[in-house]
Design a protein around this nucleic acid. Sequence first.
RNA 1: CCUUCAUAUCCUUUUC
Length: 420
Amino acid sequence: LYSYNTCISACEATGDWKLARDLVDRIYAAGLTPDTITYNSAISTCAPSGNVEEALRFLDEMNENLIRADTVTYNACLACFKYSKDPRGALDFLETMKARNIQLNVFSYASCLAALEHVANIDNSMKLLAEMKEKSIRPNVVVFNTIIGACAKAKDKDLALKIFDDMKAADVKHDEITYGALIDACAKVGDWEKAISLLHDMVQENLKPNLIIFNACISACEKGGQAFKALEIFQNMKSQGVTPDVISYTACMNACEKSGMWQKALDFFNEMKDEGIAPTILTYNACIRACAKGGEPAKAVEIFNSIRDNNMSPSTVSYNSVMMALERGGQPEKALEYFREMLKSNIAPDNLTFNQCLKAASKLQDADLSLKLYGDMIKLGLKPDRFSFYCCIETAAKQGKWEEAVKILRTMHQEGVMPE
RNA sequence: CCUUCAUAUCCUUUUC
């Protein structure tokens, strides 16, 4: 049984819950009885894919077979919500745990906080923190780090820094991850100076900046429009023996592109390939956008096509980016061709895709097209925003159709979209 | 610290 459990545990790294399922069945087939650890491990394999259904199936199976489900079991289930379709379900599950008299611990709250990070507002996280206090469960470094991470996602840098102070006041020792989350909070609002100052702080405290820390700093400089600072950090990390990865390169490329140095962005692209680092789809997208900004639509198309040559699929953003390049290059018809190709390839268009098309329709002065696109957006459940309406109005305006323009303005009001 | 639970880093449109 110990051997089986070890194997099941190994499935977590790859998130292979099917294999875990098979191994559990084999335990029974071998005439053995799985224990709590077997199921706890099996449930954990469902976390990377956010497969809550399968996790709960394992939990039910435990109950049917009278295998005791403990706090770790329930915590493992909670962790499955993070990447599920409904991460907020973690809150309900926490209530289920209470109702079933499962003893909550710091892991329960940390898992729940991690699940909420991407979807909820920070108030929810703060409530959970308060609840821990009530229950005399002391928040640990992971709990604080997770909350700081949530502040970063919500672009609330000040709250992130305040939590950091609270953490110190509570005598909870911070670590590299704390700094990583704090620097990310600065990055998200483009405060590159604070990000770099935090980098220095951690060095002072004898915490060694790792790859993620440097990458977050590069991103902070990029967002703050400081391309040269970003490149400086890129050099610094190398001289400190930290090898840049694909994220470092992609972040640098974005920094270059944002500052108008699109050739430099492409240089990075070539350099990373020379280093034997495989680009991700995000890297390709950064390249395409650099070409778009540089007024090189042909190059953008070339790189777009090379995505498939490298056995990857263009993403929605890839299409949006290549369409942007073509539009900027004065080829709106060609941009629309890519839109059609996108639909054929079953890549889901998003709001930006449609806005891009509406912009093309405006350039082509094609009011019928813009009307059709508007209808398609609604059909697909996408919400036209101010820019979508703006394009429609512009198209009507170019054709002197003022009545049509006024009509669109009214629709806009009805839809609750505020005009500028 | 060796069978089971939680945390940080990269991409897209804005009137002229």
